[in-house]
Simulated scan of single mutants.
Amino acid sequence: MNQLATTEQQYQAFQNAKKEQKLRNREAAQAIGISEGQAIANAIGREAIRLKAPFQDIIADVPKLGRVMALTRNESTVHEKIGTYENISFGHAGLVLGPDIDLRVFYSYWKHGYAVTEETEKGPQRSLQFYDATGTAIHKIHLKDFSNVDGWNEIVQKHRSDDQTPGQAVESAQPAPAEKPDSKIDQEGFKATWLAMKDTHDFFPLLRKFGVSRLQGLRLAPEGYAYKVDNISTQKVLEIAAADGTSIMCFVGNPGNIQIHTGPIKNVKEMGPWINVLDETFNLHLRTDLIAESWVVRKPTDDGEVTSLEVYDKDGEIMAQFFGERKPGKPELAAWRNIVAQLPILA
């Protein structure tokens, strides 16, 4: 679409794409050559209301909504949880630590926020939606039939921006920094520091310290601490865990937010390229055709080794991460290790 197109033209083209092609917002925006955030901003004065920063203040008020659906996604994976926002705190990483809604939030990426009301056959669908500087969705909070609409109205009135002009300028996505050659990495130091980890949270500082990307770090891991498995592994993990009742953790995120499910899963369904968990309070949708690499990763901790399955897309971006359910001070579940042992290792 011509970049000089007006917000009104873009709005109409977006609505037509949704209606005629039966596309969701994200796909309809892509179909007409704009970001989803731009498409929502074009609806200001209609379906959307611009919200003002700081967005931490809005999240602090979200408990007023009662039980809602929290949605976090990346290019290939969607993670949806129903619950209440509880135990909210702010710092370098914001936290929401309820038994159902469990988030690690990086608010520096949150640049645009909107309250959205879409009229549907099921009635008005209300949500709070947050986007990064490129107009890519970071996090959405959807009201359900049991949510508190009065709380939503109160939040919208309190956090409504004075600027309700339709449209939103966005930035172009920046290319990922080039990886340093393996030969320029202190590989022995990297391996020794890996083996000295005391907590899984030591992994990101490890990567930063040695200037390696995540996948590069897995390639350079101490022997036996990271190995590739077949890309069918995500489906196998979900199906085995659903069959034997093993309680798992599933992390899905983007630069601005990570959303975590902890607990058993029951209803796993394959639908075309998607593998899905379709449980009452947890839905996962992952495009298996976009998995480029799958890795089993072992990290030392004070509670013993912790094992994860990590899946990556063609750009080296992490799609999802799976663990056995675990609590500080307790060793990893034997049932989880048994699942991981069944994954087909690649030579």
Rank of each mutant, 00 (worst) to 15 (best):
K184R: 10
K228G: 08
L206N: 07
P222C: 04
P166I: 05
L195D: 05
N257Q: 14
E239G: 06
E179P: 02
K180H: 11
D163N: 15
P177K: 03
G189Q: 01
E154V: 03
M197R: 05
V170D: 07
G211Q: 10
I232Q: 15
L218D: 09
A226D: 09
V252E: 13
K198A: 13
G167H: 03
Q216I: 00
F190D: 00
T165Y: 03
N257Y: 02
N254R: 09
P166V: 06
L207Y: 01
I258A: 09
A226R: 07
R219Y: 07
W194E: 01
T165N: 13
T193K: 14
H261P: 10
H261M: 08
A242M: 08
G224H: 06
E154I: 01
Q259P: 08
I260Q: 14
T246V: 11
L206W: 00
I240G: 09
E179W: 00
T200W: 02
K269G: 05
C250A: 15
R214K: 12
Q259E: 15
D162F: 00
S161K: 01
L220Q: 10
P175E: 06
S172T: 12
R219I: 00
P175L: 05
R160Q: 15
S183F: 04
K228D: 08
Q235R: 14
P181I: 00
T165A: 11
A173N: 05
V268D: 12
L218W: 14
L215Q: 15
I248E: 12
Y225A: 06
A169D: 15
S213P: 04
Q187R: 13
L218E: 12
S161H: 02
K228P: 10
C250D: 09
P273V: 06
W194F: 03
Y225C: 11
L195W: 04
E239V: 02
L195M: 11
K269L: 12
T200N: 12
S213H: 03
E188I: 00
D199Q: 12
N153D: 15
K180E: 10
V170G: 10
A192H: 09
L220R: 07
T234V: 14
I248S: 11
L215T: 15
P181E: 04
P177I: 02
V268W: 03
V268S: 11
S233M: 11
Q259M: 09
M271W: 03
I260K: 10
P166L: 06
I248D: 13
K266P: 04
E179V: 05
G272N: 13
P264N: 05
Q187E: 10
Q235L: 09
T165R: 10
A221W: 10
L238V: 07
R208I: 01
D244T: 05
D244F: 02
C250W: 01
F251Y: 14
V212A: 02
G245H: 03
E154H: 07
K266T: 13
M197H: 06
A176E: 13
G211M: 04
H261L: 09
M271E: 14
D199T: 08
I265S: 12
G272K: 05
G256F: 01
H261F: 11
Q157Y: 02
P205W: 00
S247P: 06
H261W: 15
E179D: 14
W194L: 00
S213Y: 00
P177F: 01
A226M: 06
S247V: 05
R208D: 13
